[in-house]
Design a protein around this nucleic acid. Structure first.
Lengths: 341, 341
DNA sequence: CGCAGTTTCGTGAACGTTCACGGTCCAATC
DNA sequence: GATTGGACCGTGAACGTTCACGAAACTGCG
């Protein structure tokens, strides 16, 4: 038997190695390792010690092949660095673990990868995928074949399950609040990958909802665009406030960017909310730690995770059929009035 | 063949089903699916279409069994809700993905589970584990057998790889800063699961380092204890500041708790840093979004993740032997002076 | 038409485990 | 002493895929 310098066998030990070392058969080793009955206690001891000594660990592949799959779900996420996603992921992982599932995560935010890349990376390893893909749901579902895909915040059809958010409702809540507090000069800060200079119309679903509601209410308002980071939001908001000092209310694409806006307002000497209200979106835990505490269109992120896992559970068990009415959920934001609006 | 109401075959389709449907052999299907040469383009097309239609996806178990494992690593994490961990996890996932590894995460912070529970849950599914276990490293390693375990921030021996932090160095930096800015009445806010009333000595490694350094410098100081959340820290700090208004410097167990302290100070009308300095620990991104921006003993969390992955890479490839000098790393904090100290 | 060479395809074996069944041994009972 | 029953243990088969090899079909050319 060939050994590495450290004394480890070069090849992984199999059940047969243990059986040979103990002078017993495969099946006896199986019984010893898996706490099965029908084996003398002394041999169980001996076999387990030998197994430990040889560094034997059963092959998950062989085990899975014969026993039928323990389910493992993929979790595709754009950016773990954005506090929104860990809060969501935490809930998914918790509930999946409760069901005995394993969760394979892919944070596809690095190296120019897309949500589709993430699904393709996860596909050979999982029985289902939950994810914020940002497009290509149909293609992603076809990569997975029969295995259910659950997409969040995705307009496109094609996935076995969909969870969406009622942005019209959210926009209604926020705009009404601004009107109610007599704000006159509203701005909406939108996230965009490449903020070109001449943008006058929001491109995201939530942006369109906000714009629609503002127009409907007959408000005059401006569009600001920045990359989806706190720092970029801060810079963009600072520039805008300099150019438009009359601004007295800012709606922001998400809470992370809102944190940047808050900083910009403070730097510009604007009191929030007295001089200028700020409303974020998402309801990430971070919001409550800011000074002043961020008012926001809050989603219960644990609830979102729960919805995703339960939907998947239904699809896997067959109690929900892909593409049916029950496979499509719409969740609503609530207005969390804290200190900034 | 039995079908469910939705038209799906009850059993998973295997490669033989596809082969039969296409009137070819196993091997031809394999060639078609895996882009192998030696197959007519027209049959490849036909087989792929049939496979799509039957919803065939190759069994990862059978594939893994014959091809040898694609490596997948477990990531055991106490609490994804604490911004420290996602920042770390993000880096691990990125670099692991770059190597073609899969990452299975377990957030063991819910339901009273321990780090050891997490390892036991992950063990049957992975080829290695990276994790903040908070104890029992030796037992966890024995659960994994030959498969390497990399523990972070763990005093105990036993794991194949260890990454530690130089808390003495960190304490030195922080205390020196407080002395340099002429602080007289220092408090250290410690995290503890069950903050009993009569605690006078820190129980954590970092707490001991801070205490040691403060004593060494001949400072008079107090110990505060709270649960490891921002809210608990806020409450505890508020009470302490009420009882000890003379306090002019607070060191905090981590940044999340420091955020709570900042809120408490603001509520108590104390200006930070003029009236009272605050220094956190970890260097989580959140710190820069707070007002005022948190001064902290910062760790480059992406670097920590990189260290863990590279160490694991070395252990897996055999270029580093478990328990050797190279398998033990110590990283240092740097003092990130922002606005609170 | 015949043959070599190439392209295309099929067949046994193997991966490591568990399942279902069958065998052996020993003690107790008749 | 033969029989029974239980405790303990071993053997073929199967899971679904790929690998290594060999067979067949087709091509071009003399």
């Amino acid at each position: 038997m060939s050994h590495t310098p450290s004394g480890y066998p070069a090849k992984r030990a199999t059940i047969l190695d243990v059986a040979a070392a103990a002078g017993v058969s495969r099946q006896t080793v199986t019984r010893a390792m898996n706490g099965m009955p029908g084996i003398k206690e002394s041999t169980r001891q001996r076999v387990q010690e030998l197994a430990q000594e040889l560094g034997y660990t059963p092959s998950r592949f062989a085990k899975g092949l014969v026993q039928g799959a323990r389910t493992s779900v993929g979790l595709a996420i754009p950016d773990l660095t954005n506090p929104y996603y860990p809060a969501f992921a935490s809930s998914v992982v918790e509930l999946a673990t409760l069901r005995g599932w394993h969760v394979v995560v892919d944070d596809y935010g690095h190296g120019g990868r897309s949500g589709l890349d993430a699904v393709e990376h996860l596909a050979p390893q999982v029985d289902a995928v939950i994810g914020y893909l940002g497009g290509h749901a149909d293609h992603a579902q076809s990569v997975l074949g029969r295995r259910p895909l659950i997409v969040l915040d995705e307009a496109q059809e094609g996935a076995a399950g969909r969870i969406n958010f009622d942005y019209d409702h959210a926009a209604l809540l926020a705009v009404d609040r601004l009107i109610h507090t007599k704000r006159q000069h509203i701005a909406y800060l939108e996230a965009a990958a490449a903020p070109s200079g001449g943008v006058h119309v929001p491109s995201t679903v939530r942006g369109k909802a906000v714009a629609g509601r503002l127009d409907e209410a007959g408000m005059s308002w401006s569009l600001i665009v920045a990359e989806e980071t706190a720092e970029a939001a801060k810079v963009a908001a600072a520039a805008f406030l300099r150019a438009h000092p009359e601004t007295d209310g800012i709606l922001v694409f998400n809470d992370l960017m809102a944190a940047g806006v808050l900083k910009a307002a403070a730097d510009a000497g604007r009191r929030v909310p007295e001089d200028c209200a700020v409303v974020g979106m998402d309801g990430i835990p971070l919001g409550e730690l800011l000074t002043p505490q961020l008012s926001t269109l809050a989603l219960d992120l644990r609830e979102v995770g729960r919805a995703a896992v339960e939907l998947l559970d239904g699809l896997l068990s067959g109690s929900i059929t892909p593409g049916s009415v029950e496979s499509r959920l719409t969740l609503q934001h609530r207005l969390a009035l804290r200190e900034t609006a």
